[in-house]
Write a protein that binds this DNA or RNA. Structure first.
Length: 278
DNA sequence: ATGACATCCATAGGATGA
């Protein structure tokens, strides 16, 4: 089984490109972020014609997360417990939840498509929101694994954190000034390790970015960032047989500024692509 | 460089992005 995550930066602007890649790569489940539309605006037919069911959570032109899956999805939720909201100029409980989290169960795998808040600038209210959002998500991961220690849980998406210095290849990032690389953001990300969720891609693909800004020839110069991750519980990590970052999807006509990140899982059935031995 | 590039919406300039 092949599971991927991709910040598509508008599903309407590149639905054909997304589905072409899914068919070419034999993707079973894709977690999308930044779909930038409401469910009724989603190009559902393109995905359904290719054999995918959809779970969509979008509230406006901003944010938005979705799953496309060949297998049925159950237990669909559009937030995690105590997820904070945000609205510029508003405070406390007046801040509505944004469309940044979607949880589904597929083949007994618990999967999340996550679009972590950007943070905008150190000291900005959006930065505090980002840290609070990650803290609440981590608390949910802890609670899930305490209740179900053998659960195959994956939290995947655009984390908007470059955990290591080598993940921050964009020269506009300045230590002490920029979001994505600040110690509190990195600590919030690393806390998921302590919670039992590890990066299942990095051990297999140690190098490479997942995002390059559209501006300033960042992609040709390879001045990008590694901010899209698949974090898995021990039971999920045990299933992983391979992983890849699909850098070629940043090329060509009208690409997203992010590329897909993919894991291969061995679920033990005969529905995988291992050679049959008689 | 108040930029650059791309997406969306009250289709023109603003908000957002990382």
């Amino acid at each position: 089984m092949r599971i991927a995550t991709w910040n598509v930066n508008s599903v309407r602007a590149r639905s054909g490109r997304i589905v072409d890649w899914m068919e070419r790569e034999d993707i079973d489940v894709l977690a999308m972020q930044e779909i930038k539309c409401k469910p009724e605006q989603f190009p559902s037919q393109v995905f359904e014609d290719a054999g995918y069911d959809l779970a969509i959570h979008g509230l406006s032109q901003w944010n938005g997360v979705a799953f496309a899956s060949r297998e049925p999805m159950t237990d669909v939720v559009t937030s995690f417990p105590n997820m904070p909201g945000f609205l510029k100029g508003a405070v406390g409980p007046d801040q509505p939840l944004e469309a940044r989290a979607l949880g589904v169960t597929v083949n007994d795998l618990r999967l999340w498509s996550l679009y972590v808040p950007n943070g905008r600038a150190l000291g900005d209210p959006h930065y505090d929101y980002k840290l609070a959002w990650l803290k609440a998500l981590e608390a949910h991961a802890v609670a899930e694994l305490e209740a179900h220690p053998t659960l195959a849980l994956a939290m995947m998406g655009d984390w908007n954190v470059a955990p290591r210095d080598e993940d921050a290849g964009d020269p506009t990032l300045v230590p002490g000034l920029s979001t994505h690389i600040s110690p509190p953001e990195r600590a919030a990300f690393e806390a998921f390790q302590a919670a039992g969720l590890t990066d299942v891609v990095r051990p297999i693909v140690p190098e490479g970015f997942t995002y390059w800004d559209y501006k300033q020839l960042r992609f040709p110069r390879n001045e990008g960032m590694r901010i899209d991750f698949i974090l898995g519980s021990p039971a999920f990590a045990d299933l992983v047989t391979d992983a890849s970052i699909h850098r070629n999807e940043r090329k060509g006509d009208a690409p997203s500024d992010h590329v897909p990140v993919l894991v291969d899982l061995d679920l033990g059935g005969d529905d995988d692509d291992r050679p049959m031995i008689f």
